[in-house]
Design a protein around this nucleic acid. Structure first.
Lengths: 128, 128
DNA sequence: TTTTATCTACGAAAATTTTCGTAATAAAAT
DNA sequence: ATTTTATTACGAAAATTTTCGTAGATAAAA
């Protein structure tokens, strides 16, 4: 049995994963159209990236007639988890709390969101 | 007057900044010794990186006899802020709350830290 | 004084990531 | 049937980041 340590996607790969997570399934054309909304990018560039992601098993694909339909293999949650852990280590020397405090201080957070977070804090405290 | 958009340090540069933030001031030798605690790295590699960082104005340095003493120019807080914003955008599509919830769920957080965060939430709510 | 060790500068190799051009193929349009 | 369009595969160029070797200078040690 092979055990794969999860692969950290590059920045460009993450962009594509975001689109696949949002769309569920998509062709290279669709992904490229989405990417093109925010920046200039050639079709074959996107194609190549998605081929690489296929080799790395970040995405799967099925033959749909002449073209391929891609889908993310890695989940949004597990990828966020992986990247978040690395980010906290690299940028906040491992302190999730420090990062949380900065994030809440920097960004605009609604009362509703604040309450959600409070509820989570209560649950964490109860559980420990 | 020139206005510089803050530069995003690379991963290796961030490692070095962390050491400089911790030590205040340091020679290449000291930084390299710290880096060597966690991984194999040649002296001239560290030297070159710090020279590049000097060019980029991420660090300053003073002649101290024969060698240079380096110091971070960018602050820990502003760098964390910069990287955090980019990270939230790239990984959580801009939702700080989503990221905070994941971070708190994933990591071990003490009761004391939970209370600190609660206090912050209260302050944010009062202010808005 | 001579040798050894340590430091900087610098160029370039190596590794990684991103971009793109070209060719082959097949479908769609004329 | 022929032409145009859209797709994949693939190699390689370009860009970025990391690593390291070598040379030259200066201090420290022998």
């Amino acid at each position: 049995m092979e055990k794969h340590t999860p692969i950290k996607p590059t920045e460009s790969e993450l962009e594509i994963l975001q689109i696949l997570w949002a769309l569920g399934k998509a062709t290279v054309r669709q992904v490229n159209d989405e990417l093109s909304k925010t920046r200039e990018v050639g079709y074959t560039t996107t194609l190549k990236l998605m081929q690489i992601m296929f080799e790395k098993q970040l995405v799967s694909r099925t033959d749909e007639g002449r073209y391929h339909v891609y889908e993310a293999v890695v989940s949004e949650e597990s990828t966020q988890h992986l990247l978040l852990d690395k980010f906290i280590d690299a940028t906040f020397r491992g302190s999730a709390t420090k990062m949380v405090m900065q994030a809440l201080g920097n960004q605009q957070v609604s009362k509703q969101e604040l309450d959600e977070i409070r509820k989570l804090l209560d649950n964490i405290e109860k559980a420990q």
